[in-house]
Write a protein that binds this DNA or RNA. Structure first.
Lengths: 150, 150
DNA sequence: TATTGTTATACTCTATAACTATA
DNA sequence: TATAGTTATAGAGTATAACAATA
């Protein structure tokens, strides 16, 4: 006895819609992270930028925009605030002066280091619910989806 | 030879972070849908509300909020606009006057019907990239994740 | 007293176009 | 001419608290 994947009208159910299902799943995972970020005074976007910079080192802004799913105009504004807060620093690329290179500061890196354990706790809770293998499988499938050109 | 899942500093890579990976995957899937919605003059949120109402029939606002991942104050404002546009209608529940029951109108339903094929096209493109089985597997895993209480 | 929904408010992000500087 | 980034601007969503009506 399985649940039907379409409504009476023949439309696919929203739970079988990738965009909606990805969003709902993300909301579940994000809730505890939002609580953490609220206490840190960081937005989700700033956290993604810190994680991205911590991972990639010095990069230009277009790269951050792509990795952290932000538009360049948004990024300009957000980075201005983060620079004022001492979380990142910027300098123009000597080889191509159009480019601005961004790095995470020690202060920013400390925030990542001090809080990433909480993100790991959340992962552990998910793994205890779904099983470690299935989380791994899910991450693999998400990576594969990201590689798709639509 | 497999890619390491952690950075030099020992942090998990962002591509193995569920929140970030879910977001990036969603961005890939949403891009063509955003193009469609732009032409229709609908926001993503309004589209999710229409899909939800089309699927569930007459429901109270709290239910919509949960299904479409919106806060009630946002929903109040958005529904006001959608009612003015003739996409939905509202009436207070006779049995419990605190509740407001919302339904999709014929006009709203027509918009869903006329555009859902495009969402299906996108699914088809994803399936041609990932394989039908893997898309199904991904949807199953996402549903399982949504059931997690964190 | 608790719940459903609305209002108010401040903040933030999104989206697009126009613009500057550089290549 | 094309690209990287900024600025300007309008629109929309988020988040929280306070509130009204009802249960």
């Amino acid at each position: 006895m399985t649940k039907s994947n379409s409504t009476r009208s023949g439309y696919p159910r929203t739970s079988r819609s990738l965009p909606i299902s990805l969003l709902r799943a993300r909301e579940v995972v994000m809730q505890p992270i939002r609580d953490m970020l609220g206490e840190l005074g960081l937005t989700e976007q700033k956290w993604r930028i810190l994680r991205t910079l911590d991972e990639l080192g010095e990069v230009e802004q277009s790269t951050i925009a792509k990795e952290a799913c932000l538009l360049l105009p948004s990024l300009t504004r957000i980075l201005r605030g983060m620079e004022a807060d001492g979380l990142i620093s910027r300098q123009s690329d000597a080889k191509d002066k159009r480019r601005t290179l961004v790095t995470i500061t020690d202060k920013g890196r400390a925030i990542v280091r001090d809080n990433l354990h909480l993100a790991n706790d959340i992962s552990a809770r998910i793994e205890s619910h779904m099983g470690e293998d299935e989380v791994k499988q899910l991450l693999d499938l998400l990576e594969k989806l990201q590689a798709a050109k639509l």
